[in-house]
Amino acid sequence: MSRTVYVNGDYVAEADAKISVFDRGFLFADGVYEVTSVLDGKLIDYDGHATRLQRSLDELEMAAPMPMEELLEVHREMVRLNNIDEGLVYLQITRGNPGDRDFAYPPADTKPSLVLFTQSKPGLSSNAAAEKGLSVISAPDMRWGRRDIKTVQLLYPSMAKMLAKAAGADDAWMVEDGFVTEGSSNNAYIVKGNTIVTRHLGNEILAGITRAAVLRFARESQMKVEERSFTVDEAKDADEAFVTSATTFVTPVVSIDGEQIGDGKQGSVAARLREIYIEESRKAAV
């Protein structure tokens, strides 16, 4: 069955969705995006995604196509039209179509382009993937320097994901100056003793919405958290490791570069945080 997608004010069948070849998102990756999870037909942490979206737009001096409250209603309508129980809503805003290709930003009154689509993911909240865990490899972090802005410049993360697949692994943890930055599409964590360690915020990583929620829940549960850089060797020596994102929630990492982490199974910290995250997110969903 064809999905309904949203394109610049219209809800249309995906086969009829069109964007100009001169759109700057297509020509320059001049755009930002957000992915919001859906559980039980409701949006998870929409306010967090909206706040980060506005920050990304501000950092790029890009106009918002509509107020965030109206954007919420578009998300809800997309969930309704596509009958999404568990899944995702993808949103993308670009600087729009100024009429011709030019490296310089177009005039400020150029209308931005707004696109949304949904992905149905039955079993998104199940523990099957979590119980199995992920294998990761380390890869050099060769992305641009403003990873704190959630742009659509995702070619290198895609390359890193393919490096992982070629190595028989699930994902890649990117490394810069000897320290892990983040996964190809997630934030990275290790657990040593009773301490959760994850890289501090800065231009080097994205401020994950799931990351913020999980760290808050961890502290509320009296778990010790250190926000600092860690090395691949530290990860190999950790008791457990995991990733967080809107699409993985909290998922354990059981090996890195072919070396087992801990006992090679889902650890108690990751398991508990996943349980708390899903439970609390369902309560607060809109």
Score class of each variant (00 low, 15 high):
K224A: 14
P67V: 02
M78G: 08
S20A: 14
R274A: 13
R80V: 02
F22I: 11
D102N: 10
T251L: 15
L88V: 05
K18Y: 08
S113L: 03
G208N: 09
Y189L: 11
I149S: 02
G267E: 14
D85S: 09
A167D: 00
A63Q: 12
S126Y: 11
D257F: 02
R101I: 10
D237M: 06
A160G: 04
G48A: 01
T231Q: 14
V115G: 05
M159F: 13
I276K: 09
A172C: 06
S245Q: 10
V136C: 07
I256D: 05
R52V: 01
W144I: 02
E204K: 05
V38E: 06
K283A: 12
L57C: 06
Y6I: 02
T198D: 05
M1V: 12
R24Y: 01
P122T: 10
F28Y: 12
T244K: 08
F230Y: 15
Q119C: 06
S229A: 15
T94K: 02
D109L: 06
G31L: 10
I256W: 13
V253R: 06
D47Q: 10
D100P: 02
V269A: 14
H49K: 03
D47I: 02
I209M: 09
K236F: 12
L155T: 09
P107F: 11
S37C: 05
R101C: 10
H75K: 04
D58V: 01
L53Q: 04
T110I: 08
Y6H: 07
T51E: 04
A166Y: 00
S158W: 02
R272V: 09
S221W: 07
E176W: 10
E176A: 13
T94E: 07
D177N: 15
S184Q: 07
R274S: 13
K224R: 14
I205A: 11
N187A: 08
V38Y: 00
D171L: 00
N203T: 14
P252C: 14
R199H: 10
S268Y: 12
G31T: 09
K283G: 13
L27V: 03
S158L: 10
A285D: 03
Y11K: 01
G193V: 09
L155Q: 08
G258E: 03
V115M: 06
E279K: 15
G183F: 02
V269I: 13
Y277D: 15
V254R: 02
E220A: 15
V152Q: 06
K192I: 02
V152L: 05
K283H: 08
L72S: 01
G178F: 08
L163W: 00
I205P: 08
V152A: 06
E182V: 04
V180C: 07
T248G: 07
N194T: 11
E227P: 11
A139K: 00
V175K: 12
S56R: 00
K265G: 13
V5G: 04
G9A: 07
L71Q: 08
